[in-house]
């Protein structure tokens, strides 16, 4: 067994059978009730996709062996073009830096994926499970770009920000990884510690357009 395979990994998904309850970073906001009582029409739609598996992979993009091994594990090639992403099934791989990718999978697959990475890859690389520290906000609607323009300096025009593009940037007084998933659909990857602040920010920034919460 090589050194890299002896890394201790544990299943971080709470075991419901053992009575451990998983709570997303916006659990306290009770979005189900807000969605039930709140607006049904509006210019901005909001949904939290919590409790996903988030893995950060770092390795040398010029190391064909590692890049090939990662592609075998993921089933798709790592996006090597700056600011791009690939999606396959429920797996999304985002380019973060020339030697860094952020992978999200449904939470119940993250332990399996991490185990396969450890088995398949060897040498100089890093894989960190940051599932507990991140959450995803899906924002959409005809005024979603207007809302985002109030929050981030990135150019969101279709010609500069096509579907599939990923940028890490400043968002309000915090940061976010923004990915365009459709003409009027974006996904914001935010830190758990900023989740409540950004949820309040988005409510405020969306107020003039009408905010529809989905759950």
């Amino acid at each position: 067994m090589s050194d890299t395979n002896s890394v201790a990994i544990m299943n971080q998904v709470p075991d419901a059978a053992a009575g451990v309850r998983a709570e997303s970073p916006l659990h306290h906001a009770d979005l189900a009730t807000v969605a039930h009582k709140g607006n049904k029409i509006g210019g901005v739609h909001f949904r939290e996709v919590g409790l996903m598996g988030h893995l950060t992979l770092r390795c040398d993009p010029n190391n064909a062996e590692l890049i090939g091994a990662a592609a075998r594990v993921l089933g798709v090639e790592l996006p090597l073009t700056p600011l791009s992403s690939v999606e396959s099934g429920g797996t999304i791989v985002r380019w973060i830096a020339p030697d860094e990718w952020l992978i999200t999978v449904p939470n119940d697959q993250s332990f399996d994926l991490e185990t396969r990475f450890r088995a398949e890859m060897s040498g100089h690389y890093s894989l960190v499970n940051g599932s507990g520290g991140l959450t995803i906000y899906q924002v959409s609607g005809e005024n979603v770009v207007d809302m985002l323009k109030k929050s981030t300096p990135v150019d969101l025009h279709d010609s500069e920000f096509p579907v599939g593009k990923v940028v890490s940037t400043v968002f309000a007084k915090s940061g976010a990884v923004i990915r365009r998933t459709g003409a009027n659909e974006f996904e914001l990857l935010v830190r758990r510690s900023f989740a409540d602040y950004l949820w309040l920010w988005i409510q405020s920034a969306s107020a003039e357009f009408g905010l529809v919460v989905e759950a």
């Binding site: 940028v167 940037t169 400043v170």
Partner: peptide, 11 residues
């Protein structure tokens, strides 16, 4: 030069 595009100074 890593992201290959222009960004605002605050980043």
């Amino acid at each position: 030069p890593h992201c290959c595009e222009y960004r605002e100074e605050e980043e």
